[in-house]
């Protein structure tokens, strides 16, 4: 039983279930419940939550900024806060911001669950499920690239601070602008890496044969 629970395939099924729920379900309460479940599962699999929180602090910040934007620009529904006749916070804005944030948090918790299995276990599990090689490869590549992008993100963040930016000493708006700067190199690097990888794979003959021997 314990082995079955620890099998990478079980985790994958669980993660699929949780993330599908996160995307399909819209009620905030249900989403919060799923998030709680995901976090409990991640904890049960031995992932260290405090460490992840520290590492993902910047991303959490970014989530907060996105949520603020949604609250600021969605003006439909009931008015919850008005200033001199101008609607500042609407019920719809608050709901959508909450939905989006909780969804991202669930996806992050799902990644946390998967991170307790090694890349090799995941590959084997996927291959045993008889999924197409191309799909398995796509998953592996994504999984392998995440640490690289995380490093890039952390380096950019460090570089910014080393150039004299103290996040605690600037206004919220400037802080938001600083975090928006950080997304840029990651996206650029992802695009460049994807291009390079596609070329490298083709030169090594990936996809030249319909069937592979290692099945």
């Amino acid at each position: 039983m314990k082995r079955l629970l620890r099998d990478a395939r079980t985790k994958m099924a669980l993660v699929t279930l949780l993330t599908t729920g996160a995307v399909v379900i819209a009620q905030l309460g249900a989403l919060a419940l799923i998030l709680l479940l995901s976090l409990v599962a991640a904890g049960a699999y031995g992932a260290s939550l405090p460490r992840m929180l520290r590492r993902w602090r910047a991303i959490l910040w970014l989530l907060g900024v996105v949520a603020l934007f949604q609250i600021a620009f969605l003006r439909t529904g009931r008015a919850l806060l008005t200033l001199a006749g101008v609607m500042l916070v609407s019920s719809d804005g608050l709901r959508v911001a909450g939905q989006v944030s909780v969804r991202y948090l669930i996806i992050m918790a799902a990644a946390l669950i998967m991170s307790t299995s090694s890349a090799r276990d995941v590959t084997q599990a996927l291959t045993r499920l008889r999924l197409p090689t191309t799909f398995v490869f796509m998953v592996i590549v994504t999984v392998q690239f995440i640490p690289r992008f995380a490093q890039l993100f952390r380096d950019s963040l460090a570089a910014m601070q080393l150039r004299g930016l103290d996040f605690r000493r600037i206004s919220l708006i400037k802080r938001a602008r600083a975090y928006l700067y950080l997304i840029f190199p990651v996206i650029a690097a992802a695009l460049i890496a994807a291009q390079d990888l596609a070329i490298a794979m083709e030169t090594r003959g990936f996809g030249a044969y319909k069937k592979r021997s290692a099945r």
Partner: peptide
């Protein structure tokens, strides 16, 4: 905090692309 270091120490990464974001 890194900003305190940054006022006195400049650091150029091995991978320059990692510190360019504008």
């Amino acid at each position: 905090p890194l900003a305190a270091f940054g006022r006195r120490v400049g650091y150029v990464f091995q991978e320059p692309a990692h510190q360019l974001f504008a």
